[in-house]
């Protein structure tokens, strides 16, 4: 298993798409920091009553949705690029035990997504704190690090989740285009559609949409339908459905 893990990590390191995806997260982070800086300098020029209506200059608010999509793509490409190129046959000839191959990919994609997620989230938090300095809320997102910690952990968990959801969908759908369209649908389209449903289904469905899970997991949303534990369970459900479906497809179907 360690051989297969090392091989899968080497696979991820030796394709350019991984580099580009990491660079795009770095670029998003840079843009988010710039936005936070501009907001803060605008804040400084405003009278107090306008300042009180400001939202937080928190780079994580930009990094999270972009990061979710990019890590979804990273997870998806880890498998769909193999189906697209025929590499999957070579991969399954080198590792014919399909559960082992899938597990190795889960561990590697999960670990890499977590590392990228934690790093991006932390850097965004630190940059936000440096920019807002000792200004009060609401322009400063968090009063202290311990205030921020639940959000930082929830964001990291959500980014890791997206890497694995992308991977599971990739195993299930096999096609890069199909998987990316599905990811876009889940992240950007489905939440909007959910809001058009008649009550109480609009709120119920909206609360379990992928982009909504991180804030509910952190417990930061007022009147959130899901408790942090409920949001955590929803995340686990996404993992079970996508990776479980991917495993069934990998084991049952010819390659």
């Amino acid at each position: 298993m360690t051989d297969v893990l090392a091989s899968e990590f080497l696979k991820l390191r030796t394709v350019r798409s991984t580099t580009y995806l990491v660079l795009s997260i770095a670029a998003t982070l840079a843009a988010a920091v710039l936005v936070a800086y501009l907001m803060t300098s605008d804040y400084d020029r405003q009278p107090p009553e306008v300042q009180a209506a400001f939202s937080a200059a928190d780079p994580n608010a930009v990094v999270l949705p972009f990061g979710q999509f990019v890590l979804g793509v990273l997870g998806a490409l880890a498998v769909t690029s193999e189906y697209g190129s025929g590499m999957i046959r070579t991969a399954l000839v080198s590792v014919p035990r399909r559960r082992v191959l899938l597990s190795a990919k889960v561990v590697v994609v999960g670990a890499v997504s977590a590392a990228i997620g934690v790093t991006a989230t932390l850097l965004a938090y630190i940059a936000g704190e440096v920019i807002t300095g000792d200004r009060p809320e609401p322009i400063s997102a968090y009063g202290s690090f311990s205030d921020a910690l639940p959000t930082l952990l929830a964001n990291s968990a959500s980014l890791t989740l997206m890497g694995l959801v992308g991977l599971g969908l990739g195993f299930l759908l096999r096609s890069t285009a199909g998987t990316l369209v599905t990811l876009c649908g889940l992240l950007f389209v489905a939440p909007t559609i959910a809001l058009f449903l008649p009550p109480p289904w609009d709120g119920r469905l909206y609360s379990v949409m992928l982009p909504l899970l991180a804030p509910q997991l952190a417990g930061g949303l007022p009147n959130a339908p899901l408790s942090p534990a409920g949001a955590g369970l929803a995340m686990v459900a996404y993992l079970v459905v996508t990776l479980g479906g991917g495993l069934v497809a990998l084991v049952r179907r010819d390659s």
Partner: peptide, 26 residues
């Protein structure tokens, strides 16, 4: 086994491709 010539990721370098496969089988 040589299955078909296309069964490799086009973006990976030839040497890296072999290194990935070697690693998976110790």
């Amino acid at each position: 086994a040589l299955l078909d010539a296309g069964a490799a990721h086009g973006g990976r370098r030839a040497y890296d491709h072999l290194r990935v496969l070697a690693r998976s089988n110790g």
